[in-house]
Write a protein that binds this DNA or RNA. Structure first.
Length: 258
DNA sequence: GCGGTATGCCTAA
DNA sequence: TAGGCCTACCGCG
């Protein structure tokens, strides 16, 4: 999900002194967080005078919120954001580093369009899909093709479009590619709004537990039975991640349909 | 309490 | 392709 808010009162320092050389940092020299930008899964924490920290949460990264006074940062705390009333500690990120404008530009240059960003241009995505023999399930995880989509949305968008993950990109026609982009825009926006990944329709009765809530939020991801047809969900590894597919709803297709 | 797994991605081989 | 990062959660029992 994309972080879209920044507390203007929030300041920062690095418990490990990781950023000391760039003066982002000693508790005595706290600087204000101006804004946070999200491009796909890449986050940029922009502080006063444009000093920018690149954060990528990866699989384990998370911000833990503490009410002030917050406990001492742990050995594994990579960045601390401190406000008047609350403190956020970042642990486990794949990336957390000060970047120059050049380095930031290099990151943006190697990722594809992000369906969540206003003004994102899907043409690069359409162009890739039109010519690539890569399986569509692999392309959706390739951040240089389209950015921001992860394993859950891969499984769900393909299920909603009744496409098999192993189908070649270029077996999709233009209309299917456009439908995929626009579906992703809607699904990702819904995720931001609800602060969780949900691709199923609303329920009449609210589930009693967090676990059930999660179980009811997808059609095939994490499911043993397809929540559309009840058939067995198959799992296989695709691009080093588990792909989830209902072969009944998503029959493999070798060729492009007119 | 323990072990497996995970909404990710990089590097070495 | 395997391993590493680093943490939370789950099922098991």
């Amino acid at each position: 999900l994309h972080v879209c808010t920044a507390n203007p009162a929030t300041t920062s320092f690095s418990p490990q002194g990781k950023f000391e050389s760039a003066e982002l940092v000693a508790p005595s020299a706290r600087i204000k967080l101006a804004r946070i930008e999200a491009y796909g899964k890449h986050l940029f924490y922009v502080f006063a005078r444009g000093r920018t920290v690149h954060v990528h949460l990866g699989l384990f990264g998370r911000f833990k919120k503490h009410k002030n006074p917050a406990p001492s940062p742990r050995e594994t705390t990579r960045m601390r954001l401190e406000g008047d009333k609350v403190t956020f500690d970042l642990s486990g990120p794949t990336a957390c580093a000060l970047v120059t404008p050049k380095e930031k530009a290099a990151i943006l240059a190697r990722i594809g369009p992000d369906p969540l960003r206003a003004g994102a241009d899907p043409e690069a995505f359409y162009a890739h899909v039109a010519k690539s023999k890569m399986p569509i399930g692999a392309a959706l995880l390739d951040q240089s093709v389209i950015s921001g989509v992860g394993n859950v949305y891969r499984a769900e968008v393909l299920h909603l479009l009744t496409l098999h993950p192993s189908m070649a990109c270029n077996a999709m026609n233009r209309a299917e590619a456009e439908a995929m982009w626009h579906l992703l825009v809607g699904l990702l926006k819904r995720g931001v709004k609800e602060k969780r990944i949900v691709t199923t329709q609303g329920l009449d009765v609210a589930p009693k537990s967090k676990r059930l809530l999660r179980k009811e939020s997808t059609h095939v991801y994490g499911q043993s039975a397809c929540r559309s047809c009840g058939g067995d969900v198959q799992r296989f590894v695709q691009r080093a991640r588990t792909a989830w597919v209902c072969p009944n709803c998503q029959p493999f297709r070798a060729r492009r349909e007119p």
